[in-house]
């Protein structure tokens, strides 16, 4: 398949598995014979800070960073992180948000710090693109058997919507390559559950 460029920005909070998502997608894209670049901001990844993973593949890809407005997909394991990275969203972007909020600890220190309502987050993002979807990824991950698989649920959702130009076979192969040996089965289930959820969203895509 020839693609000029496909850009996926994965964001979230340290510890959620954001970088892992980027690695899995990169591995799948490589297996599908694309030219691939990634970049990671993981200086504070273990420490509850904001984390971003940039994945790019296609014939016109050169550098590791996604240009503002040019993310094809923004996948946020924490909704507020999508708003923080809004400059990467354009009219054609598709945004997936895990509906699980993670409050920064500073919220307990100051009354001035307020976490916005999900409706407000949605409204802000919809100013840029119509394709914004909340996913109950953490709930689904628990259903799969482990709350930590929410990142793989999101991978399934992306694939299930049919917008990801990657093969299911290589995506699953890559997931299994990057998850711990004892968690392979639960991640397989999570990927399937995610795909089912993605298929539901498919008809709503503009």
């Amino acid at each position: 398949m020839n693609i000029e460029q496909f850009n996926i920005l994965s964001v979230g909070v340290g510890g959620q598995g954001v970088i892992r998502v980027t690695q899995i997608l990169a591995s799948a894209a490589l297996l599908d014979n694309f030219y691939v670049r990634t970049a990671e901001t993981h200086g504070m990844a273990q420490r509850g800070g904001s984390v971003s993973g940039y994945l790019r593949f296609g014939d016109l890809v050169d550098g590791p960073l996604i240009a503002a407005g040019f993310a094809d997909i923004i996948m946020a394991l924490e909704p507020l992180e999508a708003v923080r990275n809004i400059k990467y969203a354009g009219k054609k972007s598709i945004i997936f948000l895990n509906d699980k909020q993670i409050l920064p600890l500073s919220i307990y220190q100051s009354k001035k710090i307020v976490y916005p309502e999900f409706n407000q987050i949605l409204a802000n993002l919809k100013k840029i693109t119509n394709n914004v979807f909340f996913v109950k990824a953490t709930d689904l991950a628990e259903k799969a058997g482990n709350a930590k698989t929410s990142n793989v649920i999101m991978l399934g959702v992306m694939f299930g919507t049919g917008i990801l130009p990657l093969s299911e076979e290589n995506l699953e192969k890559s997931i299994l390559k990057y998850v711990p040996a004892k968690a392979k089965e639960v991640n397989k289930i999570a990927f399937k559950l995610g795909i089912e959820e993605g298929q539901k969203i498919r008809s709503e895509l503009n």
Binding site: V13, G14, M44, Q46, R47, G48, G49, S50, A68, G69, L80, V83, R84, I86, K87, P104, L105, S106, I107, I113, V114, Y115, P116, N124
Partner: peptide
């Protein structure tokens, strides 16, 4: 053809996520 300045500067002020101890 698109407003690059606006794209470059675009952001919504959201609460900062300061790094914390493990």
């Amino acid at each position: 053809k698109i407003n690059l300045q606006e794209l470059k500067d675009m952001k919504y002020e959201v609460m900062k996520r300061k790094p914390v101890l493990c």
